[in-house]
Each structure stands twice: as structure tokens, then as C-alpha cells.
Nucleic acid binder design. Sequence first.
DNA 1: AGCACGCCGACT
DNA 2: GTCGGCGTGCTC
Length: 805
Amino acid sequence: MLNLAKIIVDVPTMQTNEPYTYRIPEFLSDQLQRGMRVIVPFGNGSRKIQGIVWDIDYAGTFDGQLKDIESVMDLSPVLNSELLSMSKWMANKTFSFQISCILTMLPGVMHAKYQKQLKLLDSSIDNEDVKKLFYKSKIIDFNPEELENDILKNIIKLKRNNKIEIKYNVKNKAHAKKILGIQPIIKPSDVETIFKDVRKNAVNQQKLLTYIKDNPQEIIAQRYLCNKYNISESTIKTAIKKKWLIQTQIEEYRNPYKQKVERNYPLKLNNEQQSAVNKINDPIINSLDKVFLLEGVTGSGKTEVYLQAIQKALSMNKTALMLVPEISLTPQMSRRVKGRFGDRVAMLHSGLSNGERYDEWRRIERGEADVVVGARSAIFAPLNDIGIIIMDEEHDSSYKQDETPRYHTRDVAKWRAKYHKCPVVLGSATPSLESRARATKGLYDLIKLPHRINNKSLPKVNIIDMKNELINNGDEDFSDELLNAINNRISKGEQIVLMLNRRGYSSFIMCRTCGFVLKCPNCDISLTLHMDTKTMKCHYCGHEEQIPYKCPNCNDNKIRYYGTGTQKVQSKLQKLVPNSRIIRMDVDTTRKKGAHERLLQKFGQGKADILLGTQMIAKGLDFPNVTLVGVLNADTSLDLPDFRSSEKTFELLTQVSGRAGRAEKNGLVYIQTFNPDNYAIQLSKNQDYEQFYRTEMHLRHITNYPPYYFTVKITSSDVNESKAASKMFEISKILKAKLSNQTIMLGPSPSSILRIKNKYYYQIILKYKNEPNLHACLEYILQHYQKDAQKGLYVNIDPDPLNFM
DNA sequence: AGCACGCCGACT
DNA sequence: GTCGGCGTGCTC
């Protein structure tokens, strides 16, 4: 049979998580292909939804009544067979629906927009409210959420009596940008004759005719033509009237690159870099899937290694995919890659509008771009013939999606590399323990770059015990040493990076009389004082309220601010070092589009002395004039209740230290802490990753944590605390019964923040080494508890969670 | 997701 | 009896 197709429908439920069979109507039989989006009828009535063609020419086994595919939404497939099979693997791996995986692979504009309309069939309705709704038209948009309850009831009644019909529309948001083009329609040979009839002083028409003679039939953007030949729009209009040319629509890519980039060329590599490139080139040349872990200290020139490996892939007529954490996709980085490979580069990052993203995607899909640079979701770029996949800062937590489907970019990268038989390069100064452990086991090839380029020495790191400082000078934010160093650098005209991993002004306020702490009404978290808006803010749900001047509890006025955030440091620093120019960079100052770039650019141009920010300034910045880095409080990440807190702290301190002394001048780093003897802090002093790795691995080993164990986090959430809790206990019973006793279960227990946005969270952590039954068991749980989702009780499975919080 | 069906209590 | 609330199950 040739007239059937398997469709993955856009209904994310367990029961519909398999292809549905539809008939292919005659008029579509020629054009329908795998991987195209289609519109299909679904359910009773006239409901229509989007679907993806999973298979064609399929001998159906479904024995019910089949329906016809209604229409196709694409001229060519939007998913190739690689991405189609990957979606299936991914759904299985992340315990999510295949349609959810497919949609995360596609640019947002390709997700269908569903719109409902009401059509009046019989105008003799007597309900005044509904009549008013229709006013003068027969068809109106229908948004049940926006309507009052009894109007809605009346509409449903009228629908039952066939006086109103509900129309379902599936809208395609993917539109190519069209601009006005013109095309000459006269023969070049006729131009001479026409030319004679044109008045002598009609200069512009003559110009146009000359153009037509030289470029017969050629379609050109009207705007471009007018500019180039200095012809006005009215001349074109006349030409159309005289039937010299016709107007058409031509497609144009939205251009997100406003600035011109300067061409740059491969740099001379040192021996270490050259040997790294050679090792990576081998599997590119020989089409082998291989994973490299490129462990290079900050400033060791990893980026140049990446670029030259990409060059190799391109020279083999293959494509290249380079992934970077969103935050390090700075204009610096873009310029470097674009400057090297020019128009062959497509960029995918959050700064693009939906349309721009769609256009970059299509350039890749059409083969017009063969180098893709982007953040997490760029791993789904529709490249063919991939020759190399690079993941820079592979330890970065933004590579894991923190909503369903909870995929890790590294896993997808390895899958694609296997498919394309190409190498993956995981690069970092501080690899994740998982990756480093795999390298030790021989699963990955370890390449080390232990030296900075040009044999630049690593910055000198000083650890300052803030317990002493507090006793000596009474300041909990600035030690004398750091302050002196700041003054010294400013007087020399050098720049400073200061990190404080806490935004806002003060982290909480407390009444000194009764001990009351102002908390968020929706979350179990204290409110942070923000001075810019003069409000108390919740960093989890965004709740804002007035700053109380009296204690809401005991009415006393002894309210005090505790804990320092970036805002407070900024104003304090301004007083301590009055002539300094400070740029503050945190979520609050970078919320607007492009703000991130603007601030960095300003700092790079030397228009400020101090860059003060949260962890977002720790990565990838390369400013030659920065000679001093200060970490104001190294303990914030250390205090997190999570098994990865040491790893996070070491990583952050190493990364931020690496910002100092990257050019000729030597770098100096001060790390302020209340735990000066902590190993994560001590070892970051010499960027001693290997020693940190050994110490941390030992701890993970004796405490049974990853990478010695695999983990899964199961979370339940509900507005009712006891419902969330009891569901988790029920699940724990099932798990206990079904899993082997080698698997360790932590919990059920309340999540470390019990309540967020008025929902309570309970969780179970499973730690296991080998549990063949686990997958089926978790699938069973999902299936079993899906019906609760309608009542607002959600059960979530997070495989290999990045944290246990 | 969105819809219908069917069971139950409350009401004309 | 009938209306409408909600729990349940199905959609090729």
C-alpha cells in the first residue's frame, strides 16, 4: 500500500506518544515526504493539529477508521532522517514525548500556533451576550480563557444546537521575509526601439533601459536597483505601466550582523597546540567517531585549536558545529569565527529574533552555511556531513536543558558524532568530573594544554581569610589588601574584574527585635533588597513589594540589611575609591537585548576601570588590560546544599582567575573567603585541576556520588503540600518493590526549596550502577501518574541531574 | 491538549 | 425527570 503515512501528532501525552496512521490523499501523494510538517484532523469534530511525517508507504496495522492528511505545511522536509531517528532516541533517553523532542529541534516559528474561531451558522440566537460578541461579523476569534463563564456556557449550548460552529486553525508562523523585486520583461533586442520613443530629457528612464538591456530577465531587489542607479520609485512605476518590467516578491534573509567583521587568519600554533590539532584532525580525515577531552588551562589557546580543526573539516568538504555556553557567545567570539570563515558561518544564539533564527536555520538547512556556532540548541542544527563537533567549556551547566526534554548537549553531540563518524572535542580548563573520569577510563582521548600561550605565567593568586579581616578592619566585603590593589591598578590605568556571585543590594532583611525575616509570599525564600527599583524582590518568582520601614511582625523599626549583593558593593566601592568608573554586570543590568554586549564593549574600550559582576563575568572574557581579579566572596557557591558545590566553586574560581594577566602584563588575583583551607579554594590557586580531580573523585567515591554512580531525580509538585508528598511516597514504594537492592534511594524528601511559585516540591534521588529494570520502571511511573497532571500534580523525571536541589 | 461520555447530586 | 459538576478515557 502506498497511500498511508505514519504521523507523529502534536499532542504531548503518553497515549499519543507513537505514530498515528493517516491516509495520504491523491493530491498530496507526489509531494509528501518524511520529515515534513502536515496538518491532520484529530479527535471528534473539526479539530486540526500539526503533525510530523514519520514514515510513508507504510502497510498499516491500525484497524480503525482512517482519516486523510489535510495539507502539507512545507515544500521540503524540515527534519532529515538523522534528526528523525535522533528524536526517538532522545525521547527515550530523557523520558519525554517524541513530539516534544522534535519541537525542540526546530526553530520556534515552526511550532504550530493553534487558533480557534466561532462561526455563526444561525443568526436567530436570542442570547444578548453572545450576540454582542459577534457584533457585525459572522466569524470571530475564540479564546475561552478570555471569556466569562456563563457566556462560555451559552456558546457551548449554541454549539450543541448547531447554531455556532467552532473552527480550528493551525497557523504556520514560519515566514520568509519578502521584499519587492522587479524583473524586466522586454527583450534586449527591443530596447533600442523603445529607447527611441523615450523623451530626451527623461534621463532616469534611459538609465533604466540601459540597465534592462544589460541585465535581461534578471530579478533584482527594487530597493537595490534604485540605490545603485539613483532611480526613483516613480520611474519604476512608469516602467511598469509601460510594461517594461513586472514586480515580484523575492526572499531575503534577515540580517542579524550589523557590523562588518575584519578578516583574520590562522595563528601560528605552539607545539602543544599543533599536536592537539594533529590528533583531532586524524579522525576527521579518517571518518572515525571519537571523543577528545581537551584539558587546557585558561589562556592556553583552545579557541585557535578549535578553529584550525574546523578548517580541516571544511577542507575535507565537511561541515563543523561549535557549541559554546550562551554567556560566552560574546561579540568577541562571533567576530573571531566570522572573521575566519566569513559567510559560511551561521550563528544561533538567544540574541536573535525568531525570524533571524529561522533564517540562520534555513541557511544551514540549504547548505549555504557549513560552520555553525551556537549555544545549547544549536546541537540540533540541520547540518549534513558533519566533520567535527566542538563543545567549548564542556563542564558548563547551561548545556543541560532544565525543562523537558532534559537533554544534555554532550549526549546529543556524541550521538551525532557516531552518526556522522566524526570527532567530538570537549574543551575546558576545568572538565566535568564525569568527562575527566571517562578520559581516565580510556573512553575519551585526553589531550592536555598545560601551558598558557607565549609561556605567559598563570596569575598569582592570594587567598584572604575574611575571618581575620572582619576582626581587623570590620569590613566584610573588602579586605585591605584587595582595596590597596584596586587603588594601585587604577593609578596605573589598568583594569579590574570583581566577582560577587549575588545580585541585588542585600540578600535579606531581618528585624533585630523579633528576628523576623521578610519572605516571599509564593516561595520559601527570603526577599532580596533591590536599591535600583527600591523594592524587595523574589529571585525565583519575580514577586516584588515595598521595602518595609517597620517590622511587619512586631512593628518595631529595627530592621537591618544582611548579606551583600552587587548593588551594595557598587555603591560601597564608589565611596571607597571615588575616582573609579564601575560597570555592574548582573541579571538586572543585562536584561535588555544587547545590554550584555554593550557593557562588555564599553569595558573593552577602557571606558571603565572596574567590571563588577556575578558569575556571568567569569567565562571567556579576554581583555588584555585586566591585571587584577578579585573574588569578593568565594563561599556563595560552596555553601550550596549540593554534591557538586566544590566542583562548582573550583570551576568558578579557576575560570574567573583566568581573566587576569592574559597579555603582556602579569595578573594578580585575590580570593576572599571565610573557608581559606577548603581544598576547592586552595587548589584553584594554582589552577591545579588534576589534584582537584583526584581529591574530589576520592570524596565522590566514598560517598557514592557521580561519576561512580548514575543518578536520576524524580520530582513531584502540587499546590497542596501533602498531595505532592504522598505521591512521592507512593512512587518510592513502587521503586523499592521493583528495583534491586544495589540501587540507593535518597528520599522521598522535600526539595531544598520546598515551595516555589506556590507549588510544593518533593523528590527522590536514585543512585545506581547497573539497573536494567530502571528504564521500564520509570516509564511505568510516568504512565501511571500522567492522569494526575490534569489535576495539577506533576511528576517529573530528570536523568543525570546536574544538581540534587 | 481538547473533547465526549457517564456517573452523581441538586434543582425546576 | 433534567441540568451541570467533574472524573475517565480516547483521539489514526
